Simulated scan of single mutants.
Amino acid sequence: MASKIQTEAERIAGEETVREIETSERTWTGAALGGLAGGLVFGLLLQSLGMMPVIGSLYGMESVAVGWVAHLFHSVVFALVFAAAVVRTDYRDAEPARVAALGAGYGVVLWLVAAAVVMPLWMSAVGLAAPAIPNLDVNSLVGHVLYGALLGAVFAFVRRR
């Protein structure tokens, strides 16, 4: 009897481990896909404004291609941070529309910190003409909100599948 109970407990523990691994994979996959989706849409806005070479310049090369690679890399990294924060809250299993709204708020925070302060400091540090701090550019705000909303929606959708 004790052996049968132990075997059942091991089976249940194994199923829980498999569920945790699947959830973890969906979390990080959803974050990466959400970051890429939001990054692509935001990147198209940046491209239309002629900003991609500036982003490339942050890495020493005034290039549209380098700008895109850097921008998408940042998009995925910030998405992973978003996912790590969300899964520790009550929003971890929320509807995609709700997580999209949370993502839009995250986009505003990124705009205030990364775009308004960090980017001008970084531009100045690498010898580029930098805007005043804080750089409260409305186009940048729109792009960051779009990025965050798409990130949140895709992230939640992938986690729920």
Rank of each mutant, 00 (worst) to 15 (best):
G105Q: 12
A65M: 04
A149Y: 08
A132T: 13
A149L: 07
W122M: 09
V126A: 05
F73W: 07
W122A: 13
N139A: 14
V126R: 04
V86A: 05
A94L: 13
N135H: 10
G103K: 09
G107L: 10
G67Y: 01
V108L: 15
A115C: 11
G103S: 04
E62Y: 06
H74P: 00
V142K: 03
G107N: 06
G127W: 08
L110E: 06
W68V: 02
V86G: 03
E95G: 11
D93N: 15
A116H: 08
V138M: 13
A153H: 10
A132R: 12
V66N: 00
V64A: 06
L128D: 11
W122E: 05
G105P: 13
A84P: 09
A84L: 11
R98A: 14
F73E: 00
G143P: 01
M123V: 11
V109N: 04
L110S: 07
V64Y: 06
V145L: 03
L121A: 14
A130Q: 07
V113G: 11
A79C: 03
A130Y: 07
D93P: 05
W122Y: 13
A100F: 13
L80V: 06
A70E: 00
R92E: 15
G103Q: 09
G105F: 11
A149P: 13
N139W: 10
H74R: 01
L72F: 01
G67K: 00
D90V: 14
P120W: 05
V66Q: 02
S140G: 14
S140H: 09
L128C: 07
S75P: 00
P134A: 05
